[in-house]
Computed example of a mutant assay.
Amino acid sequence: MDKPVIFVNILAWNGERWLKGCLDSVFASEGADFKVLVVDNGSSDRSAEIVEKDYPQALLVRNAANLGFAEGNNVGIRYALDRGADQVVLLNQDVTVDRQWLSQLLSAAETEREFQIFAPLQYDYEGRELDRLFLRGMLDMSPEFAEDYKKGEGFRKIYPLPTALGAAVLIKKEVFLKAGGFDPFYFVYHEETDLFQRCAYHGFRIALAPGSRINHWHGSLHPEEMALRSRYLTYRNKLVLMLKDPRISVFSGLLACFSWSWQFAAENAGPARGFLRIALVAWLQLLVLFYLPLIAYKRFREKRGACYL
């Protein structure tokens, strides 16, 4: 039987600070045959030049502008699938990887056939301890992981998950062909959760493979000059995410949006609690109403199958 074609896709945006560490560690990976694709997402720094000059063994695609994390990754996914990829690993630019990270992911994908999406353990960038955001998410999502972590006696071979926590994820080709790619509407924030909601709707399953390990810096996509826009996209996309979940009705999504809006307003209203809380809730609900027709169309389209690729 032919070996599966593996693509490791790295989306780069103004990432010259991290790219060398990322690519050096990826090319030092052992026990797996793979191709590396770097998609430069309209960088204004030397990201593309670094790849072109120092890593001729890497494939390079240049986007003319920053298409966002969602569509930027879609460009790479299309490229890989068009060239026969059986499995695509999406890797953040601010990550370094263990030498066995990929072989462990591929081993899990080969032996744990009931799962189609696999994520590694995430450590901090120095590799000293589990990344705090990753750990918090895992403790919330997986009672089995929480139990094993508290015992401190090692991890199991696999942990089923409701979603994956970004930075690095292996996805089999059949997932893209059925569930599609990232929704470009998100641009950035919550786009991966949206994809994994659709994956669950179409019957695909996600797992953590603790034998695989990466180190994650965080923050490479969040420059200070984008702080205001980042906050807007975070809030807007959170509402859209709840409304778009194909596993629940639109009515249930609206109730979830309203409940989250009140909770958000209560936590962020500050001293002027009464008026500001009402104003925040009103603004969030207006966003919901504004995007509702588009979301209804997207729900219909996404339930029918592959889209965005």
Rank of each mutant, 00 (worst) to 15 (best):
P4S: 10
F7D: 12
F7G: 08
V8F: 09
I10E: 06
G15S: 14
W18H: 15
F27L: 14
F27A: 01
A28S: 13
F34Y: 12
V39E: 06
G42P: 01
S43G: 05
S47N: 04
E49T: 11
K53C: 01
Y55L: 04
L59M: 12
L59E: 13
A65S: 14
A65V: 15
R78W: 00
L81Q: 05
D82M: 06
A85D: 01
D94T: 03
D94F: 01
W101V: 10
S103V: 12
S103Q: 10
S107G: 13
E110C: 10
E110W: 05
T111K: 15
A119L: 04
A119I: 07
P120E: 08
D124P: 09
Y125G: 04
G127K: 10
D131T: 02
L133E: 12
R136E: 11
E144D: 14
A146Y: 03
K150Y: 03
R156K: 15
Y159A: 02
P160A: 04
P160H: 03
A168P: 02
V169T: 11
K172I: 00
P184L: 01
F185S: 13
Y189H: 12
F196E: 13
C199L: 01
G203K: 06
G203M: 03
P210N: 08
S212K: 00
S220F: 08
P223W: 09
E224L: 14
E224D: 14
E224I: 12
L228V: 14
R229P: 00
L233M: 14
T234C: 11
N237S: 08
K238S: 07
V240A: 12
S252C: 08
C257Y: 09
W260V: 02
W260N: 03
W262C: 14
N268E: 09
A269P: 05
A269Q: 10
G274P: 06
I278S: 07
I278R: 11
Q285W: 15
L292P: 07
L294D: 13
A296D: 00
A296K: 14
F300Y: 12
L309A: 06
